[in-house]
Design a protein around this nucleic acid. Structure first.
Lengths: 347, 347
DNA sequence: ATGAAAGCGCTAACAA
DNA sequence: TTGTTAGCGCTTTCAT
């Protein structure tokens, strides 16, 4: 209970704290007599000494902690990303502190302030909304910041994202090549760059091929199963103009669409093709197995970490953004449209 | 970049740091002249002052951080639990620091030591293996510890778990009442109390009803889909003794079993019933929707937090363990066994 | 109501 | 090679 301090160790080893400090520091133990060092190590061991990182950090001016601000830990692409961070930052002596924002702007700011107050050496942000650029610039005055997954408008930040435009293009081109002419998308919140990018990629391809985007009013407030279902139901209700393929901007919404389809007495992919995004766990076990887009999240985490290290090491790299390529995973939820056009009824 | 300190604020406000400190502390600002206080607050605002929590913690002897040691963030019951922690600890001024062990004993110890070196005020451990009791007792000499989800052998620790025996009993009784006589389980690693408890609950019910447990050699090294599939395949290969129902100790293994069934040309639940555990996301969208057990993870997190608070507040509660009741979620992967006994062949 | 000063535990520059 | 000393930025007695 009573914390044992370096002084206690020093006393027991019969040396002064300075010497004890040196003896215990891997980088400077060579400056101390081998025999003394062993005495110190022994004393430390017997006393169960554990360095007080607080005191050390205060003195050294750095804590060896990197904050990671994420929107929601339940998001399945986050654990691999965080692991990636840890894999490269860990061996360099850094520890990752994860905080959630639940997409709440106020929580976002509070959490960042909190992290700074605790003097983390850097912050990784994957919870940004597009309008957060100014706030983030503020943070950058205090410490290194790297944006992960989500970018903000304006640029000028160190950022690593998935190439969402490409991902959406992959999906849409695949669908168009299958023969679809009337497509729709289930959109996530537009103030998150990932969804905005997917919208854009989709629309680019639609335009390039002269296809039709079937639109309904509104996008998902939260990109959940329930919202996906609601949005998809709206799309399927207008029987005449029904799309033959739906691109859901994430897997949850795709599943909602699958449900809506079922309730409308339609089949996937026979009547309507559906493609998701993220390749969440278990999507391969759905019926039908979901065609979706796989993100290199672990690689992204490692890349983010490397970029953070650049800044921590003062390599004055100018802010830039790297985009990692996602991959289309073809399973069974998308197929060529039925030959008899859009008026096909349920079986 | 140049951190602004309390002294800077004091100078700008024309007061001494002691006064500035008081003025900024909600608990003691009443000790300072209203007008002075406003000057200090103004100065702090203009300078962008952010308290150095390191220095404060060093002085106060507590950091306001609680470490949470988990095995794997990818485990879907963790986010709700962590949120539960945050919901009750956050308002009390604590911040949660999450670390992963990946089930590696060495990492587990290293992470705990690390947390102590950083002088967290308490540790929540949900990554324990049954044999970790002694090590944990060691930790308890330094700070408050609460065990979450997983218990260790020996007792004597503050712990909150799901009632795994009950959960398994619920499953097994349901299966037996459906008419099953020959059942099997897909076991997870026995050095994790959760799985050990499920094994026990299953076997209790089997014994009480005079049913037969169909066993194969071995249990899952890691309770994954692949392992579940391998184990289930072994069970189904022995055609004569095939069980009519399989209890998978988690949903991933249940999905593996579903696959094995498919490859063996068998149907679920017609030929073999399968029940999972955890109610992971998307299990309700499988074919068939998975009957499983739902865990009150958020409530567990809150309970753990409350127990931690007890210790932090020196309410000398003796160590005890509370068990939260899980709930059987009946969907479609389990049904009454076929009338024609165990020799039924695939369609 | 405010100032002065000690000290939390550690590291690093300087002496010896 | 080791001892000495000065802080890192803050809170908190104790004076005033």
């Amino acid at each position: 209970m009573p914390d044992v301090t370096l002084k206690d160790v020093a006393v027991r080893a019969g040396v002064h704290v300075g010497t004890a400090s040196r003896a215990l520091d891997p980088k400077r133990r060579h400056l101390v007599n081998a025999e003394t060092r062993q005495r110190v190590e022994a004393a430390a061991g017997e006393l169960g000494y554990r360095v007080n990182v607080l005191a050390r950090s205060l003195r050294k001016g750095s804590t060896g902690m990197i904050g990671a601000v994420v929107a929601d830990l339940g998001n399945p692409f986050l654990p691999p990303m965080l692991r990636g961070l840890d894999e490269v930052l860990g061996p360099r002596g850094y520890m990752i502190a994860v905080s959630e924002t639940h997409e709440d702007p106020e929580t976002f700011r509070r959490v960042c302030e909190q992290l700074i107050a605790r003097r983390v050496d850097g912050i990784v942000i994957s919870a940004a909304h597009v309008g957060d650029g100014d706030f983030i610039s503020t943070l950058e005055q205090s410490l290194p910041v790297v944006l992960a997954v989500r970018r903000v408008s304006g640029g000028g930040h160190h950022t690593v994202t998935h190439d969402d435009i490409l991902g959406a293009r992959l999906v849409t081109e695949y669908l168009v090549n299958l023969g679809h002419q009337r497509l729709a998308q289930l959109r996530g919140p537009d103030d998150v760059s990932s969804f905005a990018g997917r919208s854009r990629g989709f629309q680019e391809v639609i335009a390039e091929h002269g296809c039709t985007e079937v639109v309904t009013h509104g996008r998902a407030g939260e990109p959940t199963t329930a919202e996906g279902k609601r949005l998809a139901a709206a799309l399927l209700a207008a029987d005449v103009d029904r799309p033959t393929a739906i691109f859901a901007q994430n897997d949850l919404m795709a599943i909602g669409a699958l449900e809506a389809l079922g309730e409308a007495g339609l089949r996937c992919p026979d009547d309507v093709s559906i493609v998701g995004y993220n390749d969440a766990p278990l999507t391969e076990h759905l019926t039908p197995p979901l065609t979706t887009v796989r993100l290199p999240s672990n690689a992204l985490g490692r890349r983010v970490a490397a970029m953070m290290l650049d800044q921590l090491d003062q390599t004055n790299e100018p802010p830039n953004t790297v985009q990692l390529e996602p991959e289309l995973v073809i399973r069974a939820s998308a197929a060529a449209p039925a030959r008899d056009g859009s008026r096909r009824m349920s079986a």
